[in-house]
Write a protein that binds this DNA or RNA. Structure first.
Length: 244
DNA sequence: AAACCTACCAACCGCAGCGTC
DNA sequence: TGACGCTGCGGTTGGTAGGTT
């Protein structure tokens, strides 16, 4: 069947953004806010596709971006979150204010992978290298797409990979704080968002279950923390999966 | 100084999820 | 209910800065 292209490629620029393009995009978003990426380029007078504008804004132009080197604390947090979530860069980025998924992904591939290898840990499984080699066929910490992964809707889901207790080291799972919560990456600066995704609304609590496989409408019993804009996820994943 | 290599990161691409009609 | 459009995500690529020979 095929999808229509996201934009008219014949009349769009590609490659590095110029200063002028950046300024146009910034000034447009300052006035009109984020969203409607499809129509934004035309409205802003940019010869770019909406996707490109969105990426540029999110990864580079957003005013709340931290930039600069990652701290040791950020490193460790990324490692722990990756051990739990796999290549869910957007969720991981949600726990690191001022950092983008792209930035974290790049940082992972260029620094943290090596860091884990130097510790004798497999960057994918977070297990000791020799043990990881023995069990790579059965253990999949990240359920991300890829040639060696499975579709999201299969039973080989994140629950089995991260919290069943049958495939993860007991010592590792006990060491990791499963009281996951997601903070809003830029709640203060962002105008009210009309997206239906719960994670988008600054005034609403966020349930991590959403991105762990449960979709809207599926009941979860995560509890909100008063005076906070997060819901801590603390139920064993099996309970959620099987509605226990 | 030049050639080559490596690491980094911005940007692109394709696909999936979700909402709307 | 399914087609379609939009958005977001994750994998990958390509340009380039910095280091090494």
């Amino acid at each position: 069947m095929g999808r229509s292209p996201c934009c008219e490629k014949a009349h769009t620029n590609k490659g590095a953004w110029t200063k002028e393009e950046d300024e146009r995009l910034i000034s447009y978003i300052k006035v009109h806010g984020e969203g409607c990426w499809r129509s934004l380029p035309k409205a802003a007078g940019l010869l770019r596709c909406g996707k490109s504008c969105r990426l540029r804004w999110i990864n580079y132009l957003r005013p709340d971006l931290k930039r600069g080197n990652f701290t040791e604390e950020e490193d460790e947090l990324i490692i722990k979150l990756h051990s739990l979530l796999g290549n869910k860069w957007s969720i991981i980025a949600g726990r690191l204010p001022g950092r983008t998924d792209n930035e974290i992904k790049n940082y992972w591939n260029t620094h943290i992978k090596r860091k884990l290898l130097s510790r004798g840990l497999d960057p994918q499984t977070h297990r000791p290298l020799n043990r990881a080699a023995l069990t790579t066929t059965s253990y999949r910490p990240e359920n991300a797409r890829g040639p060696d992964t499975v579709p999201r809707e299969t039973t080989d889901s994140i629950e089995e990979g991260h919290s069943s207790g049958t495939s993860m080291d007991e010592d590792q799972s006990s060491e990791i704080n499963l009281e996951l919560s997601i903070s809003l990456p830029y709640a203060s600066a962002k105008p009210p968002c009309t997206s239906p995704k719960v994670a988008c609304a600054p005034s609403q609590a966020i349930c991590l279950c959403y991105d762990l496989g449960l979709r809207r409408g599926e009941a979860c019993s995560c509890q909100s923390i008063k005076s906070s804009q997060v819901i801590s996820y603390f139920r064993p994943l099996e309970e959620i999966k099987f509605g226990l």
